[in-house]
Design a protein around this nucleic acid. Structure first.
Lengths: 350, 350
DNA sequence: CTGAAAGCGCTTACAG
DNA sequence: CTGAAAGCGCTTACAG
């Protein structure tokens, strides 16, 4: 009682069984059959009986569209990225699109290669999550040649493709104000080279300027960035030398940072107040719980899908979509500054 | 100075420019051209000049294979799953395969629907990560009809498809012995319904039996499972009532569990020793650091890809592949049992 | 409303 | 070694 390795039913089979032409079968099953005589019923029946599933490849070839999205991640490194992908996939599927994923794991060259391969696959839209500046030319060329490209979360300066991200402005302000009120005078943003031009850092800069707080960007050299969890203690020491007491970083860096602080014998928030861009369960599990600027990453993915669909219709250059506000979630990782006084009791700095 | 929205070059274009037939162009560019006269050079040149990229859709249709893998995740919920996917994608790409992903987010019905849609897309192999028992029939039917299906991490009893996972035996033994030596007499495995038939629990059962330790499985009802982070305190209380002092759970449950222990006022390892199936940075960031049975999830994904490729050649029923041993990583979350004495000083239980 | 036919871009026997 | 031709499974003008 074995099932024979059946060649699956084709449109032709259905047509024959229903005694109609292939065209008619096709129209009933996929085209908007104008009106449905009893022929239509027969076709539907036959299709059901044969367990007919349209060959999507053939359809793609004919229609010159694959009903597939491509998504290239610069780095799939935490809940924000995952949730954005989930949202994207979900919304895509709602519109009949499948999503092909690839992850460059933080490597510029690999990102470029993956992007190229995906674009070759006749995906209808390609989404790039935090694309590196190095991919700019390729991306723009692809967009010009007619395949829409949509950036998620971040877009290097000058790249003329739409961006979908959150609106962090107010939450950043609130966080900085909170730090200010607790006496912090030196705060830093820690992140990889790719993030530095980002509008998040500009906003931090603005906010801190306004309040007369020193703000510095700790740009991780590549080796440190790619092995951050282990390199973090070193980074923490550098921050301490610079009298930094408040640290911002994207979620993927928080585990390393917090562990780094532990490793060098520091305590949160006594020695450092820590704030994450992006939320996750572990931020609440850790004691003290870690404050965050949290946004609905999933929604961002969903909106990205919709923007991609629109872009498919008409070109839309470098618009920026911010469908959701980041919110400031104060938690115990934020506390009074030790104000330049080291935990060894001596005053640091020049 | 705009680029015209070019129709991209086709094989015919290349052939014309090289002054050869389409067949020849095709053979040079993709078939194994037997020998290469100067025609071949001309073709290659023409292809380069026109920036020719083969239309993979057309090729798929013709060759009746899509060079695409499908991967359906029951739940994409932590580093083990992500790393397995990375490994799968990576190895797939090495062999010229793209990977289409979908995530059921813990929902049986959604899993089934996603699986079905993916299978319709003419993917050459479909990978299922921790497939629910409910999908068993569909999966087996698909496999019978000729599309290989490979399970990763876990396979419900009786499902006759290959499984790729780690070999946890020895690490489980070591962990249980460690707990025994610390005086633990009641230990539990916490997990969703889908995990219970799993060989991990059977092995825990064996190990504990051998050492005369009480072992119980705390099977989470669906509502608790799907909202575990918030439900965890309740679960922890149940465990306490049952005098459990040692807890095993897969990585995705650890954040909730640990937070739950905190929330009910418990301490690790004083009140509970905690051990995670699967490692992740946060396990080391948390204080105390959390012990784990850790395996190379990425390798598992890579091997899964290879198994899929083999399955494409010949059928291979229900073989089990365990390319890597899980290792026991002892950390501070494991400590002496409080031996049935509650943290309130009274003796618990009947 | 329905059917015969052309064609999407490729590959691959089949002759030569 | 090379070319003309058929065909993968579908969709879609084009006639009727």
């Amino acid at each position: 009682m074995t099932t024979k390795p059946t060649r699956s039913a084709t449109l032709k089979d259905v047509a024959e069984r229903a005694n109609v032409s292939i065209s008619t079968a096709s129209r009933v099953l996929s085209g908007g059959a104008t009106v449905r005589s009893r022929l239509a019923e027969r076709v539907v029946e036959a299709a059901a009986e044969l367990d007919y599933r349209p060959n999507l490849t053939a359809r793609s070839l004919r229609r010159a569209q694959s009903m597939t999205f491509g998504a290239v991640f610069f780095k799939m490194d935490g809940p924000p990225a995952f949730h954005a992908l989930r949202g994207l996939e979900w919304e895509a599927r709602r519109h009949g699109y499948a999503t092909v994923t690839a992850d460059a794991d933080g490597d510029d060259d690999r990102f470029i290669e993956l992007f190229r391969r995906l674009a070759e696959r006749q995906v209808d839209v390609v989404f790039v999550y935090r694309p590196p500046a190095a991919a700019g030319e390729l991306i723009e060329q692809t967009a010009l040649e007619g395949t829409p490209v949509v950036a998620i979360s971040q877009r290097p300066r000058g790249m003329a493709i739409p961006l979908v991200t959150n609106r962090p402005t107010e939450s950043i302000d609130l966080a900085v104000q909170r730090l200010a009120s607790l006496g912090h005078e030196h705060i830093a943003y820690v992140g990889g080279a790719g993030e530095i031009g980002d509008f998040r850092t500009s906003m931090l800069e603005e906010s801190t300027n306004r309040l007369g707080i020193r703000f510095l960007v700790e740009e991780l050299p590549d080796e440190e960035d790619r092995d951050f969890f282990r390199q973090a203690p070193r980074v923490v020491e550098r921050l301490e030398e610079q009298r930094v007491t408040g640290i911002f970083a994207r979620y993927p860096y928080i585990a390393g940072l917090v562990n780094g602080i532990h490793v060098v014998g520091g305590r949160i928030p006594r020695d450092f107040s820590v704030i994450s861009f992006g939320d996750g369960e572990w931020l609440q599990t850790h004691r003290p719980q870690i404050a965050t600027l949290s946004a609905d990453a999933r929604l961002i993915g969903e909106v990205a899908a919709r923007v991609g669909l629109e872009a498919l219709a008409g070109s839309m250059l470098g618009r920026t979509y911010q469908p959701t506000d980041a919110i400031w979630v104060d938690r115990d990782s934020v506390g009074p500054s030790r104000n330049g006084r080291s935990r060894f009791g001596r005053l640091l700095g020049g």
